[in-house]
Design a binder for these strands. Structure first.
Ligand SMILES: [Mn+2]
Ligand SMILES: [Mn+2]
Ligand SMILES: [Mn+2]
Ligand SMILES: [Mn+2]
Lengths: 218, 218
DNA sequence: TTAATAAATTAGGTTAGCCTAATTATTAAT
DNA sequence: ATTAATAATTAGGCTAACCTAATTTATTAA
């Protein structure tokens, strides 16, 4: 029972939306995530249910079965391993790797993820700080929180970002905000919730509330 | 004007069949190569003509336009670079790389082939001895001939094989016939055209006429 | 040159994966 | 509890890429 490329993308979307702590994975949320119409999503949810990769209930939303979860996690594993490859071995920047990994994650070969992982030296995190699922399905648990929820004057490290879009990542580059950087919240603006942060040493920059929600620290 | 995966495979098939020295690239030859029905091939040839990637004439067969040729050559370049990656970096054997490269050759990114080529140290040949097209479209010309056309007692080197199927390659492994091995034709059987060859030093093995046609030497 | 064989094409059909527009259900607000 | 808003579904349609079976066109052999 091999999955099509589209099916894999739906499973991954359901996995990701579920991870965001949403109480339910609704058809509209999936449609939004994939840029498809709700009608198309309903189509596909039927097919995935048929294949026993999800359970779907109009009001409770979609849930991955064990089998569906396993597949989704493998796609995520491949995606992140390929991102490391592109970044570490081919010198792509962190804003360039995601789109290519979207394609590479679908390459099908039983051995490839494990071989790639070994070749890369068993990396724990991808270029955006996201954890790479292990071969056995284990996923390092991170207890990082969004910068938007941090109180003033705490010194923290940027662990990961939850938006991999080139626009956002290049915005961070421009602000000299990078993974593993040490950061201190100096001020939170009342009127727009923007955050004034101090970057290692001297530089201070304002980050919008939207940006702060996507930057995770620990 | 991006190509679909299927269109890319058709262009590659037309390129390969053309390379075999066939006077024409017929619809049936393409159907044979891709494992599709002739009816499907006719469908696709219309679409490729529409897109100006080929010219097609019922009696003269299919010919790649400049644009079509450029695309086909890029696919071949990507295919062979990925084969080198899988072989040299991930430790796959030469009978394992082709199927995975069939998938990887379709990964789309402007920079990827060049970066991969650099990372691999600008290899000239893939694990089957086939030349890797350069970025500028140049392709090293090899003047190797099939072992089936070699006269007795000439000492030669195996440069490449024209069949990448796991079955054939594992057969060669079993016979201890490998790329770059030195080989001497000791005898050609009259009744079945099988070839008795001496492998570096002492070992002698019989290779069938079919096998000899697929082994190229120089 | 005609007949036989092989190649190409046409006709008609299927499936996956998308779409828009209309409708029905559910949830939230008044 | 109605009403309004939002979510989900249905109906109907489209395209790419395949198929089989029937037919037409070319090629080869007699
Ligand atoms: Mn990514
Ligand atoms: Mn990532
Ligand atoms: Mn190959
Ligand atoms: Mn090869």
């Amino acid at each position: 029972m091999l999955q099509t490329l589209s099916e894999e993308n739906y499973l991954k979307a359901i996995y990701h939306i579920g991870k965001l702590g949403n109480d339910k994975v609704s058809a509209t949320a999936i449609a939004e995530d994939l840029g498809n119409s709700p009608a198309s999503v309903v189509d596909m949810l039927k097919r995935l249910t048929e294949k026993k990769l999800i359970q779907y209930d109009k009001t409770k939303g979609a849930r991955l079965t064990d089998q569906g979860h396993k597949i989704a996690l493998l796609i995520v594993r491949k995606h992140r391993l390929w991102e490391v490859f592109l970044h570490d071995k081919l010198g792509y920047t962190w804003d360039e790797v995601h789109d290519i990994a979207e394609q590479l994650e679908h390459i099908r070969d039983y051995d490839l993820p494990d071989r790639l992982e070994k070749f890369l030296g068993f990396p724990e995190y991808d270029p955006h700080g996201d954890p790479i699922p292990k071969s056995n399905g284990k996923l390092p648990v991170t207890k990082s929180k969004p910068l938007s929820e941090i109180e003033v004057n705490r010194k923290l490290k940027i662990t990961n970002v939850s938006d991999n879009s080139p626009d956002f990542l290049r915005y961070l580059d421009k602000q000299h905000v990078g993974l593993n950087d040490t950061i201190t919240v100096k001020e939170i603006q009342g009127f727009d919730k923007s955050v004034l942060v101090e970057l290692k040493g001297r530089k201070e920059v304002y980050l919008s509330a939207e940006a702060a929600k996507k930057i995770f620290v620990e």
